[in-house]
Amino acid sequence: MDQPNRSNPPEVIIGNNQITFVLNQDIYPRDIVLKTCYVYIDRMYFQLDIPRAKIITVTVKGKERLAPKELEKFKDDFLDELLNALLRKRISRQNQKLVEYIVGGAVTAALEKADARMGDTIKEDAVDPNRIEREIEALKKELEEEMDAA
């Protein structure tokens, strides 16, 4: 009977102030690995490689010299952050349609409101077509009165 394919856990080699993670790209895609490196790039030195198909290696060195315990903690944190990034990607993919609907709805509503406002202004002008003429007459009258007074 065939055994189901089991993926090995990520291989981690801890050395002198240095850790190497050997990751399977089927589980940890390249963008996820890059995102995770970005989180720690101000504290650690990184070099990445793809030595063979589907395998990505991340070599990490502490900017400050790290004790074995600190390296061990970093290893756990890095692996957690990888999962965190994976989960965030999955959630954002799942919610993508929902976000598009909400943003689309908000934009449509804002445009409709703006159209309605423009319509009201045009309507106001349309209610009294003689308003401009009356205003001109009133201005003329005012000017004549001023001239008479002078």
């Binding site: 890059l34 970005y38 990184f46 070099q47």
Partner: peptide, 15 residues
């Protein structure tokens, strides 16, 4: 090491 990090950062930003 700084060189390697900077090159990686540029690639992360570009991606």
């Amino acid at each position: 090491d700084e060189f390697k990090n900077y090159a990686l950062l540029l690639n992360i930003n570009h991606a």
